[in-house]
Structure formats: structure tokens, C-alpha cells
Design a protein around this nucleic acid. Structure first.
Lengths: 159, 159
DNA sequence: TGAATCAAGTTTCAAATGTAACTAATATTG
DNA sequence: CAATATTAGTTACATTTGAAACTTGATTCA
């Protein structure tokens, strides 16, 4: 038997409120990760995301990174600046369109990428470790649905 | 039959990386919510969290809000300042300990609280709408486990 | 072709956030 | 009960983030 009124209709338990839980979880995870490679490799999370994409795709422009990282172009521009400073990426002008900049991991960047990927994967594994196989599969599905539902609301996707 | 190497061992698909997904989801949700009451009620998310707690508990101090909102004391101080400016809360000195400030919703704050709660709940419901009952239950459990696992890493919980 | 429009990326400026230092009050203890 | 340490909360400063303006190059279409 469950109590008749666990939560009165017009109150809200913050600690059970999904947006709150997501925010707390995401912040904790981001902070942990930032600590993990921020120090060692002089990377922000944004810069790491850009590297993660450039590790899999070559000759991308900043605009293409915007799409693939869910970051805005200002954030991309800053991440790219940091990566250039670290010599983790190369930038060359697209001869067909001289506004466009073609980005790629440098050899050093490739090496750093190769060192971070296992760290990232093992962090993710550690985080998932309390979940059963079934739960992991459920989580995957659930996140997919939530992400689809929480589409960038205001339709000013591109500005 | 699944392909032999969906993801080569040393690459990382950002779009499937849990920390990335959590960050994107949490940001979308937070932005949607900020739009929902930021404008109408002149509230930040921090301020809303404080109100959410004060709607359920009376006579709290800022330090108690720190615990219940997972925000740091500077954020609480700023949220409280905004709420005072809006006349959504009252602040009075604790006679037993004159450093302590006793916070409560004002009548106006109580009214605003009563108007926001249904909006928040309905947003949450909408977000959860693509999930089955079973999935919602799973999600609850999964988040609990992930939050426990992603404990604020560096142990400087209180400083 | 040559205005006018549009796209790629950067810079600038304002707002938000985090850390550390600070003020005021209480608690400790020698 | 004074000196010291601790706690509550705010302020100041530095860093991050986002929005809008800007620059340069490409495209449109009259």
C-alpha cells in the first residue's frame, strides 16, 4: 500500500524533478571530465569535442563542426583557436571558397586524441558501472527519445 | 548479424558518448525552462530552484539552501538577492544567531510559486511523454544510480 | 557587371559563473 | 574571558559564455 498523497498536487519535489536531476548529473560529469583532460592536455570540453569529431572526419569546416558538436559558431571559433595554439590541429584555406577553413588533427593532435579516447571511454564505463546490461540498453533508448523530444525549442536553430 | 567492427576500438563516437548526450539534453531542457519562466516572472534557474525549495520548507537559511539545491553559496546569495528584489521572498534575522538569515516565500512569491509549479510539471510531463511507464520507472532508477556514481569527485564538497 | 544579399568566421561587449578574499557574528579553548 | 578559530553570507575579481556586430569572401539577379 502506498500513501494516499505522496506529493500534494501543487508542490514540486526539486530532487525528483527531471530537469534538475539532469542538470546536476551533467554538471558533475562535465566537471569530472574537465578535470581529467583539462589539466593534462590544456583542453576545454569544447576543444575536446572538436578533437573528437576531427578524430573521425577529415577536412571539416567550422560550420560542419557546428552541426556535429551541437555548439554554436562562436564556441567553435574559440575551441579552434585553442587547438591551434596547442598545435593539435591544422587549418588551411579552402581554395574553392576562401572563407572556408579546412581543419584537421595534426600529428600531435592525433597522438593526444589517441591518449584521450581510452580515458574518456573508461570514464564512461566507470559511470555506467552500476547499471546492468539491460539498464544500459534502456538508457540508450530513453536518451534517444528524450533528446528527440527536447528539440532545440525556439526554432532559431541556425541564425 | 551485426557488422564486425561497429566502432574501431580507439575511436569515439561523440554523439553516443554519454557525457556529451547528457550535456546536450540538459542544456536543451534548461534553455526551454529558462524561457518558460525567465521572461514571465523575471527568474533565473537558480532563483527558481530556491523558490521550489522554499515552497516546501519554511524558515530556511542560505546554508540550508546550499544543501538542498546543489548550488554553491555564492549562487544562493545571488538568487536570494534577485528574489528579494522581486519581492518573492522575505528575509529576517535569526535572533538566536545573527549571522543567519531566515528565508521564506512572501505572499506574492507563494502565488508565483503556485503558478510555476504546474508549468514545470507539465513541461516535465511533456518531456517524458515519449516514454512508456516502464521506461519512466527505469529512468528514475538509472538516474539515481548515475547520480550516486557521479558523486562530486574531488571531495571538496564543502570548502 | 555591379549592387545587394548571403555565408563563414572572428571580435566585441554584456551577462553569468566560479574562486578567493572579506566582513560580521558565534564558538572554542587556554 | 580574551585570543583564536569557525561559520554565514556578501563582495570583488577573473574567467566563461552568449548575442550581436563586424569583416571578408561568395552569390544572386537586374
Amino acid at each position: 500500500m502506498s500513501s494516499a498523497k505522496d506529493t500534494p498536487p501543487d508542490e514540486l519535489k526539486l530532487e525528483n524533478f527531471l530537469p534538475y536531476q539532469l542538470s546536476v548529473l551533467s554538471n558533475r560529469v562535465s566537471n569530472a571530465i574537465a578535470e581529467a583532460y583539462g589539466q593534462r592536455f590544456n583542453l576545454t570540453i569544447s576543444a575536446w569535442r572538436v578533437m573528437a569529431i576531427l578524430g573521425r572526419f577529415v577536412d571539416l569546416s567550422a560550420a560542419e563542426l557546428v552541426v556535429r558538436t551541437a555548439m554554436d559558431k562562436v564556441a567553435i571559433s574559440r575551441a579552434v583557436a585553442l587547438l591551434l595554439k596547442n598545435d593539435y590541429i591544422t587549418r588551411s584555406e579552402d581554395i574553392a571558397d576562401r572563407r572556408r577553413q579546412v581543419l584537421n588533427l595534426s600529428p600531435l593532435g592525433r597522438e593526444v586524441y589517441g591518449r584521450i579516447v581510452p580515458v574518456a571511454q573508461s570514464y564512461e564505463n566507470d559511470l555506467l558501472s552500476p547499471l546492468s546490461g539491460h539498464e544500459r540498453a534502456e538508457l540508450k533508448q530513453i536518451l534517444k527519445k528524450l533528446l528527440a523530444r527536447a528539440q532545440t525549442g525556439n526554432s532559431r536553430e541556425m541564425d
